[in-house]
Design a protein around this nucleic acid. Structure first.
Lengths: 210, 210
DNA sequence: GTATGATTGTGCACACTTTCGCAAGCCGCG
DNA sequence: CGCGGCTTGCGAAAGTGTGCACAATCATAC
């Protein structure tokens, strides 16, 4: 892969991967770019172009082997290994994240949970996780490598938490706090904020009535 | 606004709006595109260009009035009214959404909550909301207009729920289910799926080590 | 009243993305 | 074993979005 892959392409791969996984579960063994495109509302040409950045996985006249393509994407996306995450913040939102069952089957493990609130610290969560004090975060991260940080604290505390995570060498942050984050280059942040999504839709809703 | 506004521009406006709201709360009265750009990690030129689609809100040599720009964006985005939403699915995730305090202050009200599970139906949620049966959804939507549907059901049930919402004339859907949705043109869907976000980051994480 | 320093709004060029169009290749059937 | 119907991969064209650079304009200070 000598060529530089556009970021937009990377962002579409997880969608492809998820659909392929579903197809595989349904017993579909071969699929064309046309069918994939219909299911995902993108053009077949786009799917073929996206995949062509990484190799030639299809067969003319047939389409793509669901199994083969699933495995290729798994490797490309780095999903052939497990990823270690820490969660910071165990308020209502943090609790919901901690108990979400969707991470583990996809290879994402929450290996540590933190909070500032002394009342929360020490609480045992669902599995074998005990909430630790956020002041231990920096030290803990030195001892056990962690790949991804999940931030679920109030907006005002988010940047401080993110700074600690970044200082500890974490390269990817999933930010549920409703605030933009400043990180040095090389560190990724994805924002999850339902309000931003809603606000993007109301613009169009307003115009629909007219 | 005769000109067609690019979708990417619309998607950035909520970020601007959120930052401006925060600045206003901090008592900042004037801000330049440079300062906005620094805080949001975008170029000043992009901010100026984005805003120029809607009018000329700045003053040369000064910048933008925080108050003025906040109000302009509020109007543009349609946030000068309240929006009515129904939530479908009150599992762990749905409960967390129902109790999230971030919607109401931004003008989004959950006016109905639904589930298929008969055990959940009838339960009283936090405020004055009672969980209703999803089979009542279609009828209820006829009686009281609702703008936005929030889907928080398992992947397998999502499309059926979305179909009911669309049939009832809802124009915007916030989909927490980990599955793509098929909707007719004119209906908007925003996907909220932390796993997709994580999978987009692991691609880069893998390459960071090398 | 004028000079100074700052910052907007925007035309334009560049860069990036998407889509088209088609040669090449594969499958199945007769 | 050759023909017809499909479908990929990819070069090139078309379409979008971004950032630069600068004239126009504003506040302030002297």
């Amino acid at each position: 892969m000598p060529l530089e892959i556009p970021e937009v392409v990377i962002d579409r791969l997880p969608m492809y991967f998820r659909l392929l996984t579903a197809l595989r579960a349904r017993g579909v063994s071969v699929v064309s770019s046309q069918e994939l495109g219909d299911a995902l509302n993108v053009t077949p040409a786009q799917i073929r172009k996206d995949l062509s950045y990484f190799g030639r996985f299809g067969k003319q006249g047939r389409g793509y082997s669901v199994q083969r393509l699933t495995e290729e994407l798994r490797t490309i996306l780095g999903l052939d290994q497990r990823w270690r995450m820490v969660l910071v913040g165990v308020g209502r939102l943090g609790m919901a994240i901690a108990s979400y069952r969707g991470f583990e089957p996809q290879g994402f493990d929450i290996v540590g949970v933190y909070d500032v609130n002394p009342e929360a610290v020490g609480t045992e969560l669902g599995g074998s996780l005990v909430v630790r004090n956020v002041s231990d975060l920096a030290r803990d991260l030195e001892e056990q490598a962690v790949d991804i940080g999940i931030v679920a604290v109030p907006a005002g505390e988010a940047q401080a938490v993110i700074d600690v995570l970044v200082a500890a060498g974490i390269g990817a942050i999933l930010n549920y706090a409703p605030t933009g984050a400043q990180v040095p280059p090389g560190v990724q942040v994805r924002q999850i904020d339902p309000v931003l999504s809603l606000q993007g839709m109301t613009y169009h809703l307003r115009r629909r009535e007219a």
